[in-house]
Amino acid sequence: MDINELRIFLAVASEGSITKAAQILGYVQSNVTARVQQLEAELNTQLFYRQRGMLLTPAGEKLLSYAEQIIHLLEEAHKALNDSTEPIGRLMLGATHTASAMYLPSILANYFKLYPKVELSLMTDYSAELVEKIRHFQLHGALVKSELNDESIVQELVFEEQLVLISAPEMKNIEEVCHQPFLMNTKGCPHRDQLETWLKTIGIGKIRYLEFNHPDAIIQGVISGLGASLVPKSSILSLEIKGLVRSFEIPEQYSTAKTFFIRHKDSLMTNALSKFIEMLKQSSQH
């Protein structure tokens, strides 16, 4: 069993397909198939069920955890031996759609200017998916909405904002707003949970939703008169000044939005990551 076989195994497990894994790795499909079969022969066990894709067997699930740790340790060793005072190398980040739209454009622009040798990448996803990628060492760090209780993850509160109810400007009062459809992210979004909890306290249990997964789409929908939403106040300040939306405050215990930066506790704190966290903290203080 060699390191390349483990990398191929991880790619097939992640993609659930020999074809997709081969495309990602830049190998021909027959080579990937042969290396997986070779690994199974060496371990004398079946690692995948080959029905409608490649699904891990219980033995494959066991190997997955060890393979991730082995690859991670090798990459960390390489980083430790090659890290310099000047930030260089790969920096793979993740963020929720809201965080990527509200906080990261200016931060990343400054980061690119200051540290052009860093190979920075960003993926957007839901908090739960980003947490899983951190757990499996697939990201160096991520901005998520929910506070975690996980000993394997280091988390820091970096942004805290007030949420406000928004509607089209012709809405006269909060009671009128609350009987409109709500434009929110999908179920499980902390802002949506806070909205539901608050609405229940004022006697509204049945809520009509129009689901969008991007804050800009939500705000544009509200401007168009589709309904109301609960969003960070900073995201609509200029729009309210222009008279495009109207905002209403709700009780403080339901209107606080927190964003955390998370990373795996066993990940090496490279100069590239350290400088990014430093810029995040500076931005949150403004």
Rank of each mutant, 00 (worst) to 15 (best):
residue 3 I to C: 02
residue 16 G to P: 03
residue 28 V to D: 12
residue 17 S to I: 05
residue 32 V to C: 05
residue 36 V to C: 11
residue 19 T to A: 06
residue 2 D to F: 03
residue 3 I to Q: 13
residue 47 L to Q: 03
residue 12 V to A: 03
residue 25 L to A: 01
residue 16 G to W: 04
residue 2 D to E: 11
residue 49 Y to G: 05
residue 36 V to I: 15
residue 36 V to D: 04
residue 32 V to N: 01
residue 26 G to R: 07
residue 5 E to Y: 07
residue 14 S to E: 15
residue 28 V to M: 00
residue 51 Q to R: 09
residue 30 S to Y: 09
residue 39 L to F: 13
residue 26 G to S: 03
residue 48 F to R: 02
residue 22 A to P: 08
residue 43 L to N: 10
residue 44 N to W: 09
residue 22 A to Y: 08
residue 45 T to F: 05
residue 7 R to Q: 13
residue 28 V to I: 02
residue 51 Q to V: 10
residue 16 G to A: 07
residue 10 L to N: 09
residue 48 F to E: 06
residue 13 A to C: 08
residue 12 V to T: 06
residue 13 A to Q: 10
residue 32 V to S: 04
residue 15 E to A: 07
residue 20 K to L: 05
residue 46 Q to D: 13
residue 3 I to A: 05
residue 21 A to N: 03
residue 11 A to Y: 01
residue 41 A to L: 10
residue 18 I to S: 03
residue 13 A to L: 12
residue 12 V to H: 08
residue 27 Y to E: 14
residue 46 Q to K: 15
residue 35 R to W: 07
residue 42 E to W: 06
residue 43 L to K: 13
residue 5 E to Q: 14
residue 37 Q to V: 04
residue 29 Q to M: 06
residue 50 R to P: 00
residue 1 M to S: 14
residue 31 N to V: 10
residue 25 L to E: 01
residue 2 D to L: 02
residue 17 S to C: 05
residue 6 L to P: 13
residue 23 Q to S: 08
residue 36 V to F: 12
residue 37 Q to R: 15
residue 30 S to H: 14
residue 5 E to F: 08
residue 22 A to D: 06
residue 25 L to Y: 02
residue 23 Q to P: 00
residue 42 E to M: 02
residue 5 E to H: 06
residue 23 Q to C: 01
residue 21 A to Q: 08
residue 24 I to C: 03
residue 40 E to R: 10
residue 18 I to Q: 01
residue 4 N to G: 00
residue 50 R to T: 11
residue 8 I to D: 04
residue 20 K to V: 00
residue 48 F to D: 04
residue 37 Q to K: 14
residue 50 R to M: 06
residue 42 E to R: 08
residue 23 Q to A: 09
residue 3 I to R: 11
residue 24 I to G: 03
residue 36 V to A: 06
residue 25 L to G: 02
residue 43 L to F: 14
residue 49 Y to D: 10
residue 22 A to I: 10
residue 23 Q to D: 07
residue 13 A to F: 09
residue 39 L to D: 10
residue 48 F to A: 02
residue 42 E to G: 00
residue 10 L to V: 13
residue 23 Q to F: 06
residue 50 R to E: 05
residue 31 N to M: 09
residue 14 S to N: 12
residue 11 A to I: 03
residue 3 I to T: 12
residue 11 A to M: 02
residue 39 L to E: 10
residue 41 A to W: 11
residue 28 V to L: 00
residue 48 F to G: 06
residue 37 Q to I: 02
residue 8 I to W: 01
residue 14 S to C: 09
residue 30 S to L: 14
residue 2 D to M: 04
residue 13 A to P: 12
residue 27 Y to N: 06
residue 49 Y to W: 13
residue 14 S to T: 12
residue 18 I to L: 05
residue 8 I to L: 07
residue 46 Q to S: 15
residue 8 I to C: 02
residue 6 L to V: 14
residue 9 F to I: 10
residue 43 L to C: 13
residue 13 A to I: 10
residue 31 N to C: 04
residue 12 V to E: 05
residue 24 I to S: 08
residue 31 N to L: 14
residue 34 A to P: 02
residue 15 E to K: 10
residue 2 D to V: 03
residue 13 A to R: 11
residue 2 D to I: 00
residue 51 Q to H: 03
residue 23 Q to T: 07
residue 20 K to S: 07
residue 30 S to E: 15
residue 7 R to I: 13
residue 16 G to Q: 01
residue 29 Q to T: 11
residue 9 F to H: 07
residue 22 A to M: 09
residue 10 L to A: 12
residue 2 D to T: 06
residue 29 Q to R: 13
residue 32 V to T: 01
residue 23 Q to W: 00
residue 5 E to L: 10
residue 12 V to Y: 07
